[in-house]
Design a binder for these strands. Structure first.
Length: 317
DNA sequence: CGCATTTGACCGGCGC
DNA sequence: GCGCCGGTCAAATGCG
């Protein structure tokens, strides 16, 4: 089931379909942007609006036809925020993140033990030691839960749980308020890797799957999905893809230093890198984000006006 | 038999 | 304090 589509995606990731160059994307990003922006009533469009705001529907076809690279990001969907979201016929990826960005974080590259890795594993250890808390092994009172950086992707797909090269174990499912679709909770099955992801379907557009990744993989390479021979190791092509991703990540705007919405044309398995001075697309103009302060250095702050940061923050909560 | 999924219960955070 | 809600646990169940 769905193997063709999955293989299509994997073909892309492994280079069977060559990652397109940034140069090829940029004009497309620019195009359509104004038009779509004009369509948006400057209000609570939510993260979904990002897709259209950015005109990502104009991405090269190789991307657009790849089912799992579709759409934008909205970690938490509320009906009021998504009801007007026009389903883009094409696909693209957009993500938003929260929490402290981890500079040079790269979950897809061989573990070059970034500074965060230690903290993360410590946190996971703590999580594992939660047996010292209550009878259910939950966190002690007073211990405020520390959030990992999170990256959300909207994906146009028929399958809820998209194959991304890692193995995941489902550990929960909850009904989502204001949505007929449940939210599923997954954890990376790799030992010591506490990466989690949530998968839910947009109530507004059932063809859109919202995948939110939390944390970073601590293991060097994607695990071979069962029965899938496309992944055997981080191939040079995959590395290329990642390089491509680094080049093509766009920080849209930023207000709080701990929130960096990021647009990326990379697949869901490759959370965007931490913000650094990255070229940002905004209404046809370039914008940059200071990696230290997270302050966007924009020419136009229109996006900020269109999508209130507090709304976005809520959405990431 | 081992692993993944399902599902109800439980907990913490938050708003009122 | 109470209730709601998101997130997690873990026993039961399913599946290859």
């Amino acid at each position: 089931m769905m193997t063709e589509k999955i293989e299509e995606k994997l073909d892309f990731m492994t280079g069977a379909i060559s990652p397109f160059s940034l140069d090829a994307i940029e004009p497309s990003f620019g195009g359509g942007f104004f038009d779509l922006a004009a369509d948006i009533d400057a209000g609570d469009r939510g993260s979904f609006g990002f897709v259209d705001l950015l005109g990502i529907h104009d991405l090269p076809q190789v991307l657009l036809d790849t089912e799992s690279y579709g759409a934008s990001a909205a970690p938490a969907l509320e009906s009021s925020e998504t009801q007007n979201f026009p389903a883009t016929p094409n696909s693209s990826s957009i993500s938003s993140s929260s929490s402290e960005p981890s500079p040079d974080a790269d979950p897809t590259m061989p573990a070059s033990d970034p500074p965060e890795a230690e903290d993360e594993s410590a946190e996971h250890d703590q999580a594992k030691k939660m047996g010292s808390s209550d009878s259910k092994g939950r966190k002690k009172k007073g211990q405020k839960r520390q959030r990992e950086p999170r990256f959300a992707f909207l994906t146009k797909s028929e399958v809820d749980h998209l194959e991304d090269g890692y193995r995941w174990r489902k550990y929960g499912q909850k009904a989502v308020k204001n949505s007929p679709f449940p939210r599923s909770y997954y954890r990376c099955t790799s030992a010591l890797c506490g990466v989690k992801k949530r998968v839910e379907r947009s109530s507004n557009d059932p063809s859109v799957v919202v995948t939110t990744y939390e944390g970073q993989h601590t293991h060097p390479s994607p695990i071979i999905p069962r029965g899938n021979h496309h992944f055997s190791a981080p191939s040079p092509e995959l590395v290329d893809l990642h390089r491509f991703q680094l080049q093509s990540s766009y920080v849209l705007s930023s207000q709080p230093s701990n929130f960096h919405p990021v647009v990326t044309a990379a697949p869901p398995s490759l959370p965007p890198p931490a913000p650094r001075p990255i070229p940002v697309l905004g209404f046809g103009e370039r914008t940059y984000c200071d990696s230290a302060t997270g302050i966007g250095l924009r020419d136009h702050g229109l996006l900020q006006d269109l999508i209130p940061s507090d709304v976005m923050m809520k959405r990431e909560q």
